[in-house]
Lab assay of single mutants.
Amino acid sequence: NKFNKEQQWATYEILNLPNLNEEQRKAFIDSLKDDPSQSANLLAEAKKLNDAQA
Results as ranks from 00 to 15, higher is better:
A40S: 10
S37W: 06
L15N: 12
Q8K: 09
A40M: 15
E6T: 04
N4Y: 13
K33R: 12
Y12H: 06
A54M: 09
N19E: 04
E13R: 10
Q7W: 15
A27Y: 15
E6Q: 05
K5G: 08
A44P: 01
E22S: 10
E23V: 13
L15Q: 11
N50E: 02
N16W: 06
L42S: 03
L49G: 01
E23I: 14
L15F: 05
K47G: 03
A46G: 01
E6H: 06
K5S: 12
Q38R: 10
K47T: 06
N1E: 10
L20H: 00
Q24V: 04
W9E: 13
P18W: 05
N50H: 02
E45L: 12
R25T: 05
D51R: 10
N1A: 02
L20K: 00
E45G: 05
A40E: 07
L49I: 09
P36G: 06
E13A: 13
A54E: 10
K47Q: 05
A46T: 00
L43P: 00
N4F: 13
L17M: 14
N4L: 12
A54I: 08
L17Q: 02
K5F: 03
A52I: 11
I14F: 03
W9M: 14
E6Y: 13
A27S: 09
L20A: 00
E23A: 13
K5N: 12
N1Y: 01
F28R: 00
L49A: 05
K26V: 06
E13V: 15
F28Q: 00
D34R: 12
Y12I: 06
K2E: 15
L42P: 01
K5E: 15
K26M: 13
N4A: 08
P36E: 03
I14G: 01
N19L: 05
D35M: 08
E6A: 06
E22D: 12
A52S: 08
N50M: 01
E13P: 01
R25V: 06
S37I: 06
E6V: 06
A54Y: 11
D34V: 12
Q38K: 08
A44Q: 08
I29N: 02
N50W: 01
L43K: 02
K2T: 08
N19V: 02
S31P: 02
N4G: 14
N21Q: 11
N21W: 09
N4T: 12
D51L: 14
N41G: 08
A52M: 11
K2P: 14
A54L: 09
Q38L: 09
A46Q: 00
S37H: 06
D35Y: 10
L49P: 00
N19S: 07
A44W: 13
D35Q: 09
A40R: 14
K5T: 14
E23G: 08
A10D: 02
D30V: 14
D51M: 11
A44N: 09
R25G: 02
F28K: 00
F28I: 04
A40Y: 14
F28P: 00
A52H: 10
K26I: 07
R25L: 04
D30N: 14
Q24H: 02
N41H: 10
Q7R: 03
A46N: 00
L15W: 12
N50Y: 01
E13F: 13
K33D: 08
F3P: 15
S39M: 08
L17S: 01
I14A: 01
K2Y: 08
I29F: 05
L17E: 00
A10Q: 02
K48E: 07
K26G: 07
E22F: 12
A52R: 10
N4K: 03
A46R: 00
F3V: 15
A44H: 07
E22N: 11
K26R: 09
Q24T: 04
L17G: 00
Q38D: 07
L43F: 08
R25Q: 07
R25A: 06
P36Y: 03
A27M: 13
Q7Y: 14
P36D: 03
K26W: 12
L42I: 13
D30I: 10
I29Y: 03
L43R: 04
E13Q: 14
L17V: 00
Q7H: 05
K48F: 07
S31V: 09
K48V: 08
L43W: 07
I29Q: 04
D30T: 13
A44M: 13
A10N: 03
W9Q: 12
I14S: 01
T11I: 13
K2H: 15
E6G: 04
L17P: 00
L49R: 04
N1G: 07
